[in-house]
């Protein structure tokens, strides 16, 4: 595993908002096929870390590599990186003016130039997988929160990304909607998709993750396998955090 080239690597990743240091130097490697959960207290930098991985946030210092190639935040064409990285947001961010089907086909058609009928065929297969095939022609306002998030996941999947980033995918959901969304993510992870998941669902993080990162104060305080981190946390901050949430 260690001989392999990491799919995503950050080197000395820092991010400031004004005088506020949100990330204070993160060196991480995420390998192909790995499922990595990122946990930690709010405001600790988890989401900012995730958003730096597809350059939605421009790092203040440090580098991010995708499959060995440095992603240049000053590049005129950031879409060349972003189309290889899927992202799912806490607030779903589905497009309200497009139908469920159009939400999915937009990027494959406009970014990759895929013919419309092929994009629609693939989109229907994806909708089938998440139980939304009968909603293909409706607008997102008719969907529940859980359905919107499942749509957001397959919308990202339609670009055949090499890695999926999840930014607290269930935090904005009603409790009864959480399970359905987590099942979709789990299926995705089991299919071999590389996933980075920022989450507050500790039980889920524990069962699904190959590796767990605990981020607080803008640094990775501790990382390890789910067993190591949840059962034998070494860092006092990790211990304190886990004792509060578990």
């Amino acid at each position: 595993m260690t001989e392999q080239l990491p799919l995503i690597e950050t080197v000395g990743l820092k991010k400031n908002f004004g005088s506020l240091e949100v990330l204070r130097g993160i060196d991480e490697k995420i390998y192909r096929g790995q499922v990595v959960s990122v946990i930690g207290p709010s405001g600790g930098g988890k989401s900012t870390f995730l958003r730096c991985l597809n350059l939605l946030e421009t790092p203040s210092a440090g580098k991010v590599f995708l499959d060995g190639a440095e992603m240049d935040p000053k590049s005129k064409d950031l879409s060349q990186y972003r189309k290889r990285i899927g992202m799912v947001f806490q607030q779903f961010n589905v497009f309200p003016h497009l139908t469920v089907l159009e939400n999915i086909t937009l990027a494959p058609c406009k970014v990759n130039g895929m013919p419309k009928d092929q994009a629609e065929k693939e989109a229907m297969e994806l909708l089938e997988k998440v139980g939304l095939a009968d909603k293909a022609q409706v607008y997102p306002r008719k969907l529940s929160g859980g359905q919107k998030q499942r749509l957001a996941i397959v919308r990202a999947m339609a670009m055949h990304p090499e890695v999926m980033l999840f930014d607290e995918p269930t935090s904005a959901l009603d409790p009864e909607m959480v399970k359905g969304v987590l099942e979709v993510i789990q299926k995705l992870a089991e299919s071999g998709m590389t996933c980075v998941i920022v989450t507050h669902e500790m039980g889920f993080a524990r069962t699904i993750s190959d590796r767990v990162l605990f981020i607080d104060g803008g640094v990775v305080c501790e990382s390890g396998t789910a067993e190591e981190l949840f059962d034998h946390p070494q860092n006092p901050r990790t211990q304190q955090f886990l004792s509060q949430v578990l």
Binding site: Q80, R82, K83, M87, Q91, N93, F95, V111, N112, M159
Partner: peptide, 15 residues
Amino acid sequence: VDKGQKEAALSLGLS
């Protein structure tokens, strides 16, 4: 327009 819309579009690779 919610800024999440722009972020979602950019994350999909739209220019």
